[in-house]
Computed example of a mutant assay.
Amino acid sequence: MPISKSSIPAKAKMLPPGVYCPVITLYRPAKTQEIDLEAMYTHCQYLVRGGQHGLVYQGTNGEAILLSREEKKDILRTVRKAVTDLGVPDYPIVVGISGQSTNESIELARDTAEAGASFAVSEEVLRGFYTDVADESRLPVVVYNFPGVTSGIDLNSDDLRALASHPNIVAVKLTCGNVGKGVRLTSQFSPEQFSVYGGSSDFLFPTLEAGGVGCVTGLANVFPKATARIYDLWVDGKKAEARQLQDVVANAEWACKKSLALTKFGAGYFVGKKLGLGDEKTFWPRRPYLPANEVMKKWTVEVMSVLVEEEDAIPEKRFGKGANGVGK
């Protein structure tokens, strides 16, 4: 029996499909760990040139809970300037607005709109919370379902189906890794009604095959070109090549699953010197969290190194039309 399709109208503004990097926050290599806005600017442009279809700031990978309200606004202004200077002023910038209360999340939503964000993403898990925030947000809202940081609370298919009917809730990021949940949603909603994104690149190919439209992956901080390439190959109909690259990406991403400290170390090790950011402390987590120890550093290099050859073989993005079809 055919699955009944939703009759809700298409949303006015949807998150463009593709691979999005949840960008790490970089600090000055000093005890006080102020935000290094120059480094953030440089890293942002590196990710865009690397072919990422959009960037996510101030989420779990961005250590949002450790940033002040003013620091968050400073970062957003910096990255909006970075993409504008690169020639893609309309490049998609998604910003986390999860707060400790509904009021705080609404306040953060207003800040992000004023500072230049394109979309807002929240990781709380109650239907009423999402509805209240979406009602007040000037930006379209993406639901961030991440049971690992919400004491195991997991939005199920029925929850997401109900939230999808809100005119200002446009997509979900499934960091729960539940491909079956994604299939249930894509069987009922078109991408124009409610889009489904995987929460990492190690199951991007299955997400696309199931009707999803992309993913958000911490590994893109280290290998932006290779992670985006899976999506690009799939869209071009080169599925065998996409599947082959998916195998390598999935193995490299295993290190990111272990901890944020390893993701940041990997970025520093493989990318830092390319960007003139040679001090490893720039990539340390913010205190009180600790950087990776020597044993895990060595393991991370071994695990991530499988993707170096593929990453180096992919050319950087050239601008004219812009990134992701936007800009000049």
Rank of each mutant, 00 (worst) to 15 (best):
K5H: 03
K5T: 09
P9V: 03
K11M: 07
K13C: 02
G18V: 15
V19H: 02
Y27S: 08
K31V: 02
K31M: 05
E34Y: 00
E34V: 00
I35T: 04
I35Q: 01
T42D: 14
T42R: 15
T42P: 05
G51I: 08
Y57H: 15
G59A: 13
E63F: 01
R69P: 00
V79Y: 09
V79M: 08
R80D: 01
K81M: 03
K81T: 02
T84C: 03
D85K: 10
L86V: 07
L86E: 10
G87C: 08
Y91H: 05
I93H: 00
I97W: 06
Q100W: 12
E104R: 02
E107K: 10
E107C: 01
E123C: 07
E123D: 12
E124A: 01
E124P: 00
E124G: 00
D135C: 12
E136V: 02
E136S: 04
S137T: 07
P140V: 08
V142F: 07
V143Q: 03
P147N: 09
V149G: 02
T150G: 05
T150W: 05
S151T: 08
G152M: 00
D154L: 12
D158I: 14
D159K: 08
R161Y: 05
R161Q: 09
S165N: 09
S165R: 11
H166M: 12
P167K: 09
V170E: 15
T175Y: 03
G180C: 15
G182L: 04
V183K: 12
R184S: 02
T186M: 00
Q188V: 14
S190P: 14
E192Y: 07
F194D: 14
F203Q: 01
L204N: 00
P206I: 12
T207L: 14
E209K: 06
G214A: 10
V216L: 13
T217V: 08
G218K: 00
N221I: 11
F223E: 05
A226K: 02
V235H: 04
D236S: 13
G237S: 11
K239Y: 09
A250M: 09
A252K: 12
W254K: 15
K258C: 03
L260V: 14
F265A: 11
G266T: 08
Y269S: 14
G272V: 07
K274F: 02
K274Q: 10
L277N: 03
L277Y: 08
K281F: 10
T282A: 05
R286A: 08
R287V: 07
P288V: 06
P291T: 10
E294Y: 03
V295Y: 01
K297W: 03
K298W: 08
T300C: 14
M304D: 15
V306G: 05
E310M: 14
E311S: 10
E311T: 06
D312T: 09
R318N: 06
R318Y: 05
G325Y: 08
V326T: 06
